[in-house]
Design a protein around this nucleic acid. Structure first.
Length: 184
DNA sequence: TACAAGATTGTCT
DNA sequence: GACAATCTTGTAG
């Protein structure tokens, strides 16, 4: 069988994927512009096993995409204002997902600056990342292999270390070190 | 039917 | 460092 690196990555556990996604490229082809970032910050959410996950209390119209197949994009609205995106992992119905929290601008920086309305802090946060790449609820449930939002093998983390820390912005299960960050 | 809380960000002091 | 903006979900009456 083919050795598609994305398939190989997605076949792992949600924690393996969260760490393995660091250094990958997230490419967006929304509109006429192509924008891409190198992923440097992720968090693991283990569905119904995880009190901090949206899927903990079962399936709802909002989180339905999380119960789909591995490689599905799950986009949700945060605080009614921002969008945040996840990569679905594991068997369908498991609702495991990796939250993409941040990255380094790699392509289409000018477009990202226009979308963000500023030239600093373009992609160092979940909501900012989605705005810079023009990811919205319209992309919820899409396949990350097909686009317009795609995951492709990136330059890697260049020998830098990966740090594991507590997750951010949640009030439950904060003792679990399920956040992965590239140092530097 | 009403209300509180949330995987955030930007602005003001 | 503190607070407002704004929408979806879950729970209570």
């Amino acid at each position: 069988m083919t050795r598609d690196p994305l398939e190989a990555l997605l076949s792992g556990s949600v924690w393996e994927v969260a760490e393995g996604l660091l250094g990958w490229t997230l490419e967006s082809t929304v509109g006429d512009a192509i924008t891409a970032v190198t992923i440097t910050e992720t968090e693991a959410y283990a569905g119904e096993l995880d009190p901090a996950s949206h899927a903990f209390r079962g399936r709802t119209p909002r989180n339905a995409a999380m119960f789909g197949s591995p490689g599905t994009l799950y986009v949700y609205r945060s605080y009614g204002i921002h969008w945040c995106m996840n990569v679905v992992v594991g068997e369908p119905g498991l609702a495991h997902a990796v939250l993409l929290r941040g990255g380094e601008p790699q392509q289409g920086v000018t477009v990202m600056e226009e979308r963000r309305g500023r030239a600093t802090d373009l992609t160092n946060g979940p909501g900012k990342l989605c705005q810079a790449l023009a990811v919205t609820g319209d992309h919820d449930g899409l396949d990350l292999r097909a686009g317009p939002i795609r995951l492709v093998r990136g330059p890697g983390i260049g020998g830098r270390t990966v740090q594991r820390t507590a997750r951010i912005g949640i009030s439950k299960a904060t003792e679990r070190l399920w956040r992965y960050v590239v140092v530097g």
